[in-house]
Design a protein around this nucleic acid. Structure first.
Lengths: 143, 143
DNA sequence: ACTACTGTAACTATTATTGTTACAGTAGTA
DNA sequence: TACTACTGTAACAATAATAGTTACAGTAGT
């Protein structure tokens, strides 16, 4: 089980747009060369970010731009936008035997714990803003 | 992305063993009927739990038993035993372009955040002991 | 020898991920 | 208007993980 690289790629994408948008026109080919994946992968992710209102393309000639202030975009927003999750983080066997006392109550025992962990996990993703990441990147680049 | 149902099944397995080991002989068929999956699925999971020293089978006739006190078995132990994880929770594009300043430093920016979240996530799994879950199940069953 | 199991191989189906080529559509430009 | 440079997306392939099945050899006790 791994969280799709779409999450890391979408973060990389936003950092690259932020770093280069003044000097270069941001195209899927441009981003693909920094991230080193096929441009179609980038276009698919950008398409998902557009749908989520995170990025936009005004016109092919003007390139991809970020629509919201970076402090209003969290890693969780990207995680949702690029479809890393499917409702429940923890999978569950579908039909526990309800004529067995354990099977009948296993959901009641586990759901609370699983939901609590999922909530905490998602909260941690929410706590990371893209603006924080760009600041950290800039600090590294100063040396 | 979902965490394999092997985790929920292995928890269910331990709760069922704990609940029924005095009245019934615990076999893969017995467990399979409570969990409602094919007995081979159970045998594979039991095999992994045996390797992790969590359960054991003294002999086919005596059935499956739990080897450690339930307060010494955490959900994290099961999570590792049944192979829900592959080192890193977050996947990463393999070859960011190191001649690009963003590509060169993306790991330095993200790794700390990702590792911190993974550590916290695993800590939450460690905090749930099987003994807690059996107590909660027993509380439900009292009604 | 028989019985009741386990352990595991071999196979299938399904799904997700990652990647590729190809091409129609579109917004600006010459 | 034709051209250029892009996007958006379909179609396909490869790989891997999950979940499930049947089959059967091996083994511990009876």
């Amino acid at each position: 089980m791994k969280i799709s690289s779409r999450l890391a790629i979408s973060i990389h994408t936003l950092l690259a747009i932020k770093s280069f948008h003044e000097k270069y026109k941001i195209t899927s080919d441009f981003l693909a060369s920094s991230i080193n994946v096929n441009p179609v992968i980038i276009r698919r992710i950008i398409s998902q970010l557009n749908n989520a209102g995170i990025t936009e393309i005004i016109s092919p000639k003007s390139g991809i731009s970020i629509r919201r202030p970076l402090e209003n975009i969290s890693v969780y927003n990207l995680y949702v936008a690029v479809d890393c999750i499917d409702q429940q983080l923890f999978n569950f066997h579908t039909n526990p035997n309800i004529s067995c006392p354990v099977g009948k109550n296993i959901h009641e025992v586990l759901d609370g714990h699983f939901n609590k962990i999922q909530y905490a996990f998602e909260s941690m993703l929410k706590d990371i803003k893209i603006s924080t990441l760009t600041n950290e990147l800039n600090d590294i680049l100063k040396f």
